[in-house]
Structures are given as C-alpha cells and as structure tokens.
Computed example of a mutant assay.
Amino acid sequence: MTRWGITLPLTGVPLAAHRELVERLPELGYTDAWSAETAGTDAFAPLLLAAQWAPELRLGTAIVPVYTRGPGLLAMSAATLAECAPGRFVLGIGSSSPVIVEGWNAGEFAEPYARTRDTLRFLRAALAGEKVTADYPTFSVRKFRLERPPEPAPPIMVAALRPGMLRLAAREADGAITNWLAPGDVPTVRAEVGAGVELVARVFVCPTVDADAARALGRMLISGYLTVPVYRAFHEWLGRGEVLAPMREAWAAGDRQRANEVIPDSVVDDLVVHGTPDECRAKIQSYVDNGLDTPVIALLPTGDDPLEQVRALAPQ
C-alpha cells in the first residue's frame, strides 16, 4: 500500500483545532502524520495529540535536530512518544541548519555527518534499554539508561540530502528523509539508498489555480531555503547549480527581490506542486511512481480553508 502523509500542524491553525481533521485522516486515506521543528511547535507535541486522536496513523518526526537536545533528552522524548503510539512512531533525526542550531539555539553546528551518525548509534542503544557509557567522536555519555524503554523500540530514520548521509541512512538507519526535490530527482536519491530502504520526502503543495500566486510563494521559499549551504550543495548535486546561480548571486549581494525574480518558472514548477487538487494529487503520485515510498504533503497557505484543502488532497 502506498503511504500518504500530511505535515502537522497546518499553518495558521491552532494545535487544539486540529482534532476533528486528524480524527478523519485515516478514513480520507492518509496513513501518516509527520511533524517538523523550526520555530513553531516542537516536533513531539503535535504527534502526542495525534496519537490519541487517530490511533491508526503512523507518526513521524521530520526532523528533530541532533544538536538542540542532549542525547539523553532526545532518547527520553522519543521513548515517551513511542510509549503513547506503540509500533506506530518513527523517530526522524537530522543535522538541521546553522541558523536553527547556532542562531536560534546557541549550539555549535560542527561535524554534522559525524554528529548525526553518533546520535543514531547512541539512540539505537538507549531505545533498546541498554545502559550507555560511551565516548563517541562528537560527544560522550556516562551511565545513561531509560527508566522505561519503549516496546517496541521505534524505527529511526535519518534526514539526508547527499550521498554520504543517504548512504548512512541506508546502512545504519531504517530509512531516509529528504526534502525540496522534484519527482525527476527521486531516482537519483533512490540510487544512493538502494532498494528496500524506505524513502520519505516532504512535498510542498499549493492547491490553487492561480499559478502566478503559487509561483510567487514558491520563489520566496526557494530563495530562502536553497541559498542555505546544505540545500545549495544538494541542488548542485542534482544538477541545478547553473540555473540557480543568478539567485544565489543576488541573494549574496543582499538583493532579495532580485533573487526571487531570477528563479525560472520551470524550477518553481518542479519543486512546488500547484494546481487543482486533482492536478496536485497526480503530481504527488508521480513522486511515488519515480521511487518515493512516502510523500508527506506540506500544505502552503493560499488563503483558502486549509482543513478543506487537506480533505481535497486526500488519496481517496
């Protein structure tokens, strides 16, 4: 069965106001609800509520940064949610970005590959109930043991954008989570993780027939995200280095308006799903047809009722 996910919470909707929608997600055909963590809700709270509102859903964090919680606290948070949703929770972890880690959380964004790998290894042991005393290359832990390790221990997925992290996810985790890619990019990513490894991707969806409005919003998001070094490197690897060079140059010069203007329509249309609900649904399905296991819709604001849009984008 193809999985079909939604990102919670929805933009502009209070967390408590999601109950009726979340309760209906399974009957609409949604199989998954995934959270994000930037500067809004934390990654765990929306899923704790969803675990009670819709016991059929699989729940996942996409993603929890490995720098913004200590290893022990991260294990505790994951164990709590796994206990509330036994067998239905996936812990997605990743390095996040310097803005979130350093600018907003007073951490040090150092050795992201190694820190993610070490946190993954620690969490494997901790969530299995082991008493962990270890000197990892990027941190040390002494005598940590969860009071109530979850049964079963949750799968752990790794956020990955390029070959090194994708291969880590395939080798040591239970899947890979990616972001900001087009349907045609999926085979490139799939080739790095191989067959049989779950591949999850957040897909930005703007359900409107006003293409100009959708592209304007898409350009703002693309210039804000794809100028971040990790995303820049990702899209250079995917082959968009040259077409996005004018955007990066304008952004570096401080001309945000120009940075948006020089992004071609074709890039926006590749990376942001827009159109009628039927057209959006078909393009989301094209990700799956190209090798994605779990599309996770990230609904972009259009001014229309987001709750109704989630219903309209349902797979059935």
Rank of each mutant, 00 (worst) to 15 (best):
M1S: 12
L8A: 02
L10Q: 08
T11S: 03
A16I: 12
A16T: 10
E20S: 14
L21Y: 05
V22G: 08
R24F: 15
L25T: 01
Y30A: 13
Y30D: 06
A33V: 06
A36N: 03
A36L: 02
E37I: 12
T38H: 09
F44H: 04
L47K: 03
L48P: 01
Q52C: 15
W53A: 11
A54D: 11
P55W: 09
L57A: 08
R58L: 12
R58Y: 15
T61H: 02
A62V: 13
P65T: 09
A75N: 05
M76W: 01
L81K: 01
C84D: 12
G92A: 03
I93H: 09
S95P: 14
S97K: 10
V99W: 14
V99T: 12
G103T: 15
W104H: 12
W104Q: 13
A106I: 14
F109N: 08
T119L: 13
L120Y: 10
L123W: 11
A126E: 02
L127Y: 03
G129V: 09
E130S: 11
T133A: 04
Y136Q: 06
F139M: 14
F139K: 07
V141M: 07
V141Q: 07
R145P: 02
L146H: 05
L146W: 06
P150A: 14
P152L: 13
P154D: 13
P155N: 05
P155L: 13
M157P: 00
A160I: 00
P163R: 12
G164Y: 14
L166A: 10
L166E: 01
R171E: 15
D174H: 09
T178R: 01
A195S: 15
E198G: 12
L199M: 11
L199A: 00
V200Q: 00
V203T: 02
P207Q: 06
T208C: 04
D210M: 12
D212C: 08
G218E: 04
M220V: 08
M220K: 11
L226K: 00
Y231G: 01
F234W: 00
E236R: 09
L238K: 05
L238S: 11
R240D: 13
E242R: 14
V243F: 06
L244H: 07
M247D: 01
E249D: 15
G254C: 05
G254I: 06
R256A: 12
R258Q: 15
A259P: 00
E261C: 09
I263D: 06
D265P: 04
D265Q: 03
D265V: 12
D269M: 05
G275Y: 05
T276E: 06
T276Y: 04
D278K: 11
E279K: 01
I284E: 01
N290I: 03
P295I: 02
V296N: 03
V296E: 06
L299Q: 03
L300E: 04
P301E: 08
Q309T: 08
L313T: 13
Q316G: 15
